[in-house]
Design a protein around this nucleic acid. Structure first.
Lengths: 336, 336
DNA sequence: ATGAAAGCGCTAACAC
DNA sequence: GTGTTAGCGCTTTCAT
């Protein structure tokens, strides 16, 4: 920078002013030109760290994730956070902890030492977390998780998602709708179930407890659950996630049943590799990971405000594909 | 830091020395204790940027990716790079460009301004890239891609991978082995084909051109390819990737054929969500994204050296599951 | 309108 | 052994 000033025949402060496009003090047009010229000629790059040092604040936003890679989803959170941060001139500092306590501690220390503007603490599946100490030394927002501590938390709206998924089936005339929930206790388990109930209630359909079963949230779980639900005479099935739906497809096929001709299926997550390419393509409801990341930095930056309970709910938009049709067996009393 | 020094009754340099665990100049044991005490009491955190500023080098490694989220894979590269960087005291600065030229330029400028130790330029699928200008101002290594410019490039060993995948089938006695390659021109297309040929040649099997077909690298492509290969009387099929294999499973089943009873199948990529949960679980060969990330920072840091051609090939380890069996039809002349 | 100078928090000579 | 001091590259009063 000194070199630039020298080459342009001005002082360093003049260069600084020009670089930061200050409004107040204007620089002579000629000097300004000479400065830009010198910058280009010398290939000068400002030193971000020196700048941050003097201003006392960096342009970093820290993101600590518990499992960057174990799932295709985490990438989306990073992506969304990165995009939004970038939009406001911030850069993402990524720290992966793989659930390791020490790594987490170290990561947070590192972020703090870099004087990050704030940190996003995220998990790969929606759950309650215990906030590691140290995080309180900086602004912090929880992404895809929440804590007893009153930190702002950005989470998917599981209830509305469950409601919408069920509604997809109801809209096509289904009334005996099965639900393969997960065996794992979680906000997803409770929220989607509640959404399922709400949708049923709103449509005036009595809840039949025999229609909701639980299975491991994987293909294998869905495959095994097929038999249970078929015995109950369901015409449509809402699966806890797309992987379960994938397994269900297999289970149905092995019993000679066609989707959606014989049974309609709706998933959850909108896991692209699966949902979009199953035969038939799976109608589902999307887990908004990208948006979670975006919303996370927005509340961190004070652009969005959480509700009074500290939560910001991000919607799970339905994605209609081809796994839902009107039920083959018209319910009694319904002329069709 | 001054406060700490004052509280401990020593000078700032003493604190600095203690913090950096210098070997040469030792500090009195009592002073050291007082310093640590003061640090804890004051909740002092060193300012990483001030440190980097004076030493002239930061502990950052930049990672620019063309598509962080479009694929489950990118996350693995980030993860590997992050872990390895962390291990050596570096932090990852992540920049996503989504293939956008301007974003890329801006991202690189930003990384350079932060005086990164070097940058990893990565792509989500293995391909040739044009290196954006500016990257030469810093150490740079290509990850999962390569360029005409002589930059070190860390890439998967497609040939060996194709060879190993084919060998999995050969080992079980298959001799009429089909290959569903991708329609997309790419190192994967050429490398896996070459590996397939090499494995066949090594086993003394003549190449039958009718046995290699091309299809879109998705479920749909695999489904459609089933018919073509079945007509050729193959007993085993090597698929360009797991998604193709997934489609192939469907195609085979629709024709009443069982995997691996009637036809053995091997995939490529080891895309967890799919490969591990298909019925039967898919034997495949893994695309080593995590290792690619690790290797990237290792060569960047000078820990590993590329071959004379600037490449470092990362192996694609076979992952055996349950989609391969001995062929039902024993080839003529083979008593076993 | 522009330059001089102080200082951000830290490290690294160099004295003592 | 331990304290003093001079910057690292930049922003920002404050003079001019």
């Amino acid at each position: 920078m000194r070199d630039v000033a020298q080459a342009a025949g001005v002082s360093v402060s003049a260069v600084s002013v020009v670089l930061n496009k200050k409004e107040g003090a204007r620089i002579g047009a000629d000097a300004r030109v000479r400065i830009h010229d010198a910058i280009a000629r010398l290939g000068y790059r400002p030193n971000a760290m020196a700048k941050d040092l003097v201003t006392g604040q960096s342009r970093f936003i820290g993101l600590v994730a518990d499992a960057i890679a174990s799932t295709p989803f985490a990438g989306q959170i990073i992506h969304g956070a990165q995009d939004e941060a970038w939009k406001h001139g911030f850069v993402l500092l990524v720290a992966n902890t793989e659930g390791n306590q020490d790594a987490e501690h170290e990561a947070i220390a590192m972020l703090l030492e870099h004087k990050v503007r704030g940190v996003l603490y995220s998990t790969w599946y929606h759950r309650e977390v215990e906030v590691p100490e140290g995080l309180d030394e900086s602004d912090c927002v929880l992404v895809n998780c929440y804590a007893a501590a009153d930190l702002p938390a950005v989470v998917p709206d599981e209830i509305a998602g469950g409601r919408d998924a069920t509604q997809l089936l109801i809209d096509q005339g289904h009334r005996r709708i099965g639900f393969i929930n997960t065996t794992t206790p979680s906000p997803a388990h409770d929220g989607r179930l509640r959404g399922y109930r709400e949708a049923l209630a709103a449509a005036g359909i009595d809840l039949d407890p025999a229609l909701v079963v639980e299975a491991r949230p994987e293909q294998e779980g869905g495959y095994d659950a097929a038999a249970l639900l078929l015995d109950q005479g369901v015409t449509g099935i809402f699966c806890h996630n797309d992987r379960v739906a994938m397994g269900l497809y297999d289970g149905l096929r092995d019993r000679g049943l066609k989707v959606p001709g014989d049974i309609s299926v709706v998933g959850f997550d909108n896991q692209e590799v699966i949902a979009a390419h199953l035969r038939p393509p799976l109608s589902t409801v999307a887990l908004p990971h990208y948006e979670l990341g975006v919303a996370g930095v927005r509340v961190l930056l004070g652009l969005d405000a959480p509700a009074s309970d500290g939560r910001v709910l991000v919607g799970c938009p339905p994605v209609e594909r081809a796994s839902i049709a009107r039920p083959a067996v018209v319910p009694a009393g319904d002329p069709g």
